[in-house]
């Protein structure tokens, strides 16, 4: 119990004093996971919409792949992204292994299937009558998709939150492709693993509390947008 107390005290001290080392870790965590989520949204919402609204051979297979991808283990993603980005790998010339860019790529791979599958599910769930009605009202394809996306705001924001939650909490991929380099690729999860292996349990607890605070803050903002009653 004393350990938890020590960790709590440490977390509060670090938060109040804005410890520069911790601030750096917090910012990087937000940047990497925020960028990865943004990319996965840019990929996932269009792809999910297309999958939901069209019929073509092989569609069901793609949908099952995306649904399977929601549970893609981060370490597997980390390993494969590493193999490609290592200097000895096919993309080694890019020189981005052990940089935040590599982490963003890995996290975007993890989050994209989540966003695709959520988007697909919420758009498919809309009453088909609505689409019929919109077409009858003379909506063109863009107008229709836009209306459907607005109609599914609740679900789409859930997709964003699930994607963000998935990547800010993962450690396997970040550790492998980022390397937990101090001041460069050290994020909350990898720092926590390291402090545990160093035996600094109080610092590890403090980090875990700060990570949860950060994740909650972002989710709270997204929830505020989701629950806003302004769109009709």
């Amino acid at each position: 119990m004393e350990l938890i107390w020590d960790g709590l005290v440490k977390a509060i001290i670090e938060l109040v004093t804005l410890d520069p080392g911790i601030t750096e870790v917090a910012l990087l965590t937000l940047q990497v996971s925020g960028a990865a989520t943004l990319i996965s949204v840019l990929i996932g919402i269009p792809l999910g919409s297309v999958l939901a609204l069209s019929q073509f051979p092989g569609r069901n297979f793609l949908v099952s792949i995306s649904n399977f991808g929601m549970g893609l283990p981060p370490v597997v993603v980390g390993l494969w992204v590493s193999i490609f980005l290592w200097r000895s790998g096919p993309l080694g010339f890019l020189n981005i292994i052990y940089t935040p860019y590599a982490m963003i790529i890995a996290q975007a791979v993890i989050a994209s299937p989540i966003v695709i599958s959520f988007t697909l599910a919420v758009i498919q769930q809309i009453n088909p009558q609505l689409r019929l009605q919109l077409t009858a009202l003379g909506a063109n394809r863009t107008q229709m998709v836009w209306t459907l996306l607005k109609e599914t705001k609740l679900g789409l924001l859930a997709a964003v939150m699930a994607g963000f939650g998935g990547v800010i909490s993962e450690v396997g991929a970040s550790m492998m492709v980022g390397g937990n380099i101090k001041g460069m690729t050290r994020v909350f999860t990898t720092a926590t693993v390291m402090e545990v292996s160093k035996g600094n349990f109080d610092i590890a607890i403090a980090l875990s509390i700060l990570l949860m605070l950060l994740a909650y803050s972002v989710t709270a903002i997204l929830t505020a947008i989701q629950q806003g009653r302004n769109i009709r």
């Binding site: 910012l27 937000l30 990497v32 925020g34 960028a35």
Partner: peptide, 11 residues
């Protein structure tokens, strides 16, 4: 969106 972009630029 702006905040995320900003953080990307910072990155």
């Amino acid at each position: 969106a702006f905040l995320i972009l900003l953080s990307l630029v910072g990155c």
